[in-house]
Design a protein around this nucleic acid. Sequence first.
DNA 1: ACGTCTACCTGTCGGC
DNA 2: TGCCGACAGGTAGACG
Length: 271
Amino acid sequence: MPELPEVEVTRRGIAAALVGAQLRTVVLGKPLRWPLGCDPAQLAGRMVTGVGRRGKYLLFHLDQGCLIVHLGMSGSLRWLVQPTEPGPHDHFDCRTDRGILRLHDPRRFGAVVYVASLHDPVACKLLGGLGVEPLSDDFRVEGWLLALRQSRQAIKPLLLSGRVVVGVGNIYACEALFRAGIRPSTLASRIGPVRARRLHAAIREVLAQAVELGGSTLRDFSSVQGHAGAFQLHAQVYGREGLPCRVCGTPVRMERQGQRSSFFCPRCQRP
DNA sequence: ACGTCTACCTGTCGGC
DNA sequence: TGCCGACAGGTAGACG
């Protein structure tokens, strides 16, 4: 579920409350995608020193070590001031001296992993192969053009892979390709410099707009404060198969690439 | 190095 | 109403 915008909205929603908080007890629910990697009791007394993000991973920096959190497809974090009993889909409770950080994740594709440092092999495995942050100055157009030229993949799976640029999932890949006028099945190396530049700009614009709108809420994402996102109301193609393109009126098409649905306008987006 | 498939798990929705 | 399959925002690993 959550792509970069939803993760960033979550980060912004939690950071102020959590930085400076001291962990008291950590309670685990059903198993998540990966094991925590330490005895939960070991975390008692640690202080949260910062809340960062790398791609779709949240990084809870502690005065000793780091908790790496991924929301998977259906995860969301909540900040509770008043304690309540964890529900059947709450699988990680981090009780602090200020409130409770709770991970709700019905499908359990998410994960919370403790690492002693970001140089830890486990951290390197999770974060080491990631591409550049699209909203940072490191996302330069020259490197982007080179990466597209050197790739032999179709552009959509290349975006989803996170090897060149991180944080772009199925919704925002479809939307960025629409804005750039590129069909999802187009080979990356066959995209000329004009459209490649447009795609570079579109990725940044669509992600930044989505962050401003609080992310996308398709079924169950909500911010830490429980607010739904609004980006889905602005989607041009995602989830709109058969509906008229908002630009030209041609029916939006859906095709499968791998196991993922791609939505596009056959007239506005050329191969 | 690429695509394709499978798996992980639960909930929801459409069709019959 | 109820059952059954398809599908969902992600990622990793196996295989050809």
